[in-house]
Design a protein around this nucleic acid. Structure first.
Lengths: 195, 195
DNA sequence: AAATTGAATTGACAAATGTCAACTACTCAT
DNA sequence: ATGAGTAGTTGACATTTGTCAATTCAATTT
């Protein structure tokens, strides 16, 4: 829980009262998630929002051919959920599972709603989260329609080195929307250029 | 302004007081934008949020080779801004201009901040906007990394026919991240399939 | 230590998409 | 009415990326 409060302090500035802190501690529940364990499966409704305090997770869909398409990575201090399913209560087409043994703080949709209404700092945090999320999404969309596969990889290398270090290469390829073979070749070429 | 209030009623349910309505009318200013006229240029900071009451606009970047990359279209009832520049006050790398003669309601960043704090309905609206925006962004990212060029076009045809009707084909291609020639061929093939 | 597993690499080839140039059709301004 | 632009189409070819199969490599299990 300490990780989470550090995160809160970083993004809200607003100090919270002891009472508010107690409320938060009540609303969030800690959960260990082992490698390869799911916290959301395709076909279920995403009822919880999860804050990662430890570990590495991913959100992905599986197509007709059984190929996984990763739309999001998450490590410490990241939130995981299928936003569409969570907000709309619709059936999710995504899976979320742990790649490293992880630990998350989960809050139920109803409590999240409640918390945001009753604790001002949480409203600010939500707005901040949405803002950052929107900016990141715009960048990723721009990268997808503008850059080549190699440029997208280099861009990721620069802006999200943590992901590249902690997830295997085939998952990075999936995230970038290219085949593992192509990524392997891109890396080889980039390496040769530096020699 | 009527268009805007219709929109508000549709998304907030909360009726507003006469005083609040007056506040809104004061904060927003109406502006006509002629075809090809800019409301944001690369290098400027995006200080205003614009709600389109009439017309059609687009947001795009221009690369080294002078090629435009469209990241967003907007028509009636859509908001336009470079979210990153608007929220962070950073210099924008995007342009926003009108494709049809348009009319927008503009609000300055400071007033927008103020309005959201003082009018509860606007806070709800903001949250709703962010939510819808996040869902749409996730879908577009998923489409970009999962679908082929043809599938992306068909997806757009199904979910955003209005854009396809109102913007020329080369802009649709830019939005999809493909060359105009490729889109032309995709359309030809799709047409042949239906014969 | 041997065997097993899965990830990463590599090669050969196929498919998708981009580029360039030519041509057509259309609109708009003079 | 004429001419200049602009969008869209088409063909030929280049480049990028995907697919499939084989191989290497490292980690893990037995």
């Amino acid at each position: 829980m300490e990780t989470f409060f550090n995160y809160l302090r970083r993004y809200t500035e607003h100090p919270m009262s002891a009472q508010e802190i107690a409320l938060l501690q009540q609303a969030f529940s800690r959960r260990k998630v082992r490698k390869r364990q799911y916290i959301l499966q395709e076909g279920d409704v995403c009822r919880h929002l999860s804050f990662i305090t430890k570990g590495a997770m991913r959100q992905y869909s599986v197509d007709d051919k059984g190929i996984e398409h990763i739309v999001q990575f998450g490590i410490e201090d990241w939130w995981m959920s299928d936003r569409e399913s969570f907000e709309l209560g619709s059936v999710s087409t995504y899976n979320i599972d742990a790649w490293e043994d992880s630990e998350v703080l989960q809050i139920h949709y109803d409590d999240w709603w409640e918390i945001r209404n009753s604790i001002p700092a949480m409203r600010i945090l939500t707005a901040e989260m949405d803002k950052r999320h929107a900016v990141a999404a715009q960048k990723r969309i721009h990268a997808a329609i503008t850059l080549t596969a190699e440029e997208r990889y280099l861009d990721m290398l620069r802006h999200q080195p943590a992901f590249i270090q902690r997830f295997p290469q085939n998952m990075i390829a999936s995230y970038l929307g290219i085949s593992p073979e192509t990524l392997s070749r891109i890396r080889k070429q980039a390496y040769l250029k530096n020699e």
